[in-house]
């Protein structure tokens, strides 16, 4: 395939996913907005107004970046795991597999769909957050980089899950038992500096902690962890997941019979 044909094939995949995301907006875009609005109201406004500032930020300001990131993570992951698994289940994936698209392009196509939905949800939740508090942006480049890398990472993760899922249960096990606990324990609602040293060290093994802190740093310039380390961890995981997927697609594991 020439680069131009590859671009057309990529655009076709992305356009299809965009149309689908917008067509079923009440399932793809609305739920994270409703959920995070409830978080803003209950934790940010009702409970948060009773709490002391963290890193010099009001509690609602402190949790907004983490809640945006939580929506981005969930949306990106669910987008790729569901589109890929449904495509396998309904065999519409065959339309892509019989085409001359190289494996890496198929991966890029699915992952870009997840990134697109993650960014759409992130922007929507961010706009809703502005109704509850003032958000300053300290570093726009780091903000965009963190958003794109995080949504890329979890889109890659969703695709790996989709390749291994044997049924509909297989799509929800990782989000329920791995992703949700790691996200909630990833420093959305607290600073790990409030913990004793032992639990601070334990928290450092949670990769989501680095993403949320990088994002909060981009907004307010405060972070529990050095921003360079945060971004390095993110890039490292993206590369690792990408290599795993390339290997899976090359061998046909979870993709072909």
């Amino acid at each position: 395939m020439t680069p131009q044909k590859q671009w057309t094939a990529f655009y076709t995949m992305l356009r299809n996913d965009f149309v689908r995301i917008v067509r079923i907006w009440s399932q793809t875009l609305l739920p994270p907005v409703v959920t995070t609005t409830l978080y803003f109201v209950v934790f940010g406004t009702f409970i948060g107004s009773q709490l002391k500032p963290i890193h010099g930020l009001t509690y609602i300001q402190f949790i907004v970046p983490g809640l945006i990131m939580m929506s981005v993570i969930t949306s990106s992951y669910m987008n790729t795991v569901s589109t890929f698994y449904f495509a396998k289940w309904t065999k519409t994936l065959d339309e892509i597999l019989v085409s001359p698209m190289p494996e890496w392009l198929v991966i890029v196509g699915f992952v870009s769909g997840g990134v697109m939905r993650g960014l759409m949800v992130g922007v929507l939740v961010g706009v809703v957050g502005l109704f509850f508090t003032h958000l300053a942006i300290q570093n726009i480049a780091v903000l965009i980089l963190t958003l794109v890398l995080t949504s890329t990472l979890f889109s890659l993760g969703g695709l790996i899950n989709g390749a291994f899922a044997k049924g509909f249960d297989g799509m929800s096990i990782v989000p329920t038992f791995v992703l949700t606990p790691l996200t909630y324990l990833g420093g959305i609602f607290y600073s790990i500096q409030q913990f004793p040293p032992f639990w601070q060290t334990v928290s450092l093994f949670n990769p989501i902690l680095y993403m949320i802190n990088a994002f909060r740093w981009a907004f307010f310039g405060v972070s529990d962890i050095n921003i360079g380390i945060c971004l390095s961890v993110l890039i490292g995981f993206v590369v690792l997941f990408l290599l795993v997927l390339l290997w899976l697609f090359r061998r046909g594991i979870g993709v072909r019979l």
Partner: peptide
């Protein structure tokens, strides 16, 4: 190759024209 499989494997919610044009897109046809 053009493949006509044994089982129906297109998106049942899509229109006829969209199914065909999408397939062409995967082959790099605008």
């Amino acid at each position: 190759i053009g493949l006509v499989p044994q089982e129906f494997n297109f998106n049942i919610f899509e229109k006829v024209e969209d199914i065909i044009v999408t397939q062409a897109g995967y082959y790099g046809t605008p």
